[in-house]
Simulated assay, not measured.
Amino acid sequence: MKFTKNVEDVIANFRGLPRTVSAAARRDPTPLDNILAVLQEKYKLEKPSPERTLVENWEKIFGPSMCERCHPVRIKDEHTLVVSVTNQTLRSELQFMKRSILKKIQKLEHCEDINELVIRS
């Protein structure tokens, strides 16, 4: 029967044997600076993005009354913004405003490629 490392360590402790030491436990830890650099490169955290621009300008796009009742979910296929709303009534209201909302979004920096808006309740 195969046990996890933690279970093997408990059994070894109970029997008075030394704990198992894996190869990963013996090597030096990776400096946090290196991990952060890899994450910044992988997720492009330093570069401006449409997601960041949308979040920063959400109230400007939807106004103070609606911005708290709808939230961006994701940008699908780099051209479609998916928005989640709190109820069906708000969804219907935003469907009528879709064209004007898209124009506001397309005027934002880094959001020019967004040409479709999907509203989900």
Rank of each mutant, 00 (worst) to 15 (best):
Q40V: 02
S22L: 05
P48C: 09
P31Q: 11
T30H: 09
R19P: 09
R27Q: 08
A25L: 10
T20Q: 11
A23C: 09
R15C: 13
N13H: 13
F14S: 13
T30S: 12
R19F: 01
D33G: 09
K44C: 05
P18A: 15
V10G: 09
A24T: 14
R15P: 00
D9N: 15
R15Q: 11
E41L: 05
S49L: 05
V21G: 14
R15D: 08
P48F: 00
P18M: 08
V38C: 03
Q40M: 07
L45D: 02
K42Y: 03
L45A: 05
T20I: 10
E41F: 02
V38N: 06
R27N: 06
N34Y: 13
Q40A: 10
A24L: 10
I11T: 06
R19G: 12
N13F: 06
G16C: 13
I11V: 13
R15M: 14
A25I: 03
Y43H: 12
N13C: 09
A23Q: 04
A25F: 07
D9W: 00
R19Q: 13
N34P: 00
Q40D: 12
V38R: 12
K44Q: 10
P31L: 12
R26Y: 04
V10T: 11
P29W: 15
G16M: 06
L32D: 08
L17N: 12
V10A: 15
P18Q: 09
R27K: 13
R27H: 04
L32V: 07
G16D: 05
